[in-house]
Design a binder for these strands. Sequence first.
DNA 1: GTAATTCCTAGTAAGTTGATAGGATTAATA
DNA 2: TATTAATCCTATCAACTTACTAGGAATTAC
Lengths: 137, 137
Amino acid sequence: MLSKKTKYGLKALTYIARSESESPVQVGEIAKSEKIPQKFLESILLTLRKSGFLGSKKGKNGGYYLIKETSEIKMADVLRVLEGPIAMVPCVSLNFYEKCDDCQDEHECSVHKLMIQVRDNTLKVLRDNTLMDLAGK
Amino acid sequence: MLSKKTKYGLKALTYIARSESESPVQVGEIAKSEKIPQKFLESILLTLRKSGFLGSKKGKNGGYYLIKETSEIKMADVLRVLEGPIAMVPCVSLNFYEKCDDCQDEHECSVHKLMIQVRDNTLKVLRDNTLMDLAGK
DNA sequence: GTAATTCCTAGTAAGTTGATAGGATTAATA
DNA sequence: TATTAATCCTATCAACTTACTAGGAATTAC
């Protein structure tokens, strides 16, 4: 299951990408428009800023803005920051690999074999889709 | 993340499928061989039996056995029983659909659009792979 | 100086996961 | 028929995760 955190984060990024305004977009505006609890969204946007997806301006008339082209923000990267590993089991994760306790030989493991395929297909979708595709601009 | 329950379930099914023996395979044997807590595995196999993937024989020399061809047991169906929805959000789930509270129009939602693609690709893998593919027989 | 905004840390209720406990039931066999 | 070995069933529980909320500090525009 996709967490609310990730879902809210993606919706917020989309909202910012679609925004026509020159000035930064405020959390309150996004929260209201997308029906996201504001304080929760604050923490999510903070994470996205610290991970290099967003810039921010503090104080009055502050807010968040994109610091990269929408076409350069891959969903795979956003998901890794908000959701964690993309793979369904750590033993097939590219970025968060961990050996299984119960497996002697990974290459004999039927679950491993299956989950590699799932990962590859999911990863392809998430790498091909950028924020431009989500936002439509 | 794939739950331990699902992972153990898949490993157990694979074990049973690979078993040469005529007589049913016992939980204790699977648990030992695959390093799965026995009592936990008991409950998982019970679920798989109730869902029609396994048959069982009680009492001495009892155990579990397949009641379908390995080629007819699709991973998608097993996953739905053990793990629940395959889709990452309920609003793109085929079998467990639920509307989002926060979305007015699903077709405008960027998350929806993305997760449909993820679901389609995951589903293809999970439908194409049967227990025969996992077990190699 | 005031209002409006982001930034930061901490806490928390509710739900889920990954088990374990304890036995009831059933069947083979000596 | 008694014993043993297996599945079946229900209940319970600790640890973890999620989805927030609280409260304020820091910063900036005007």
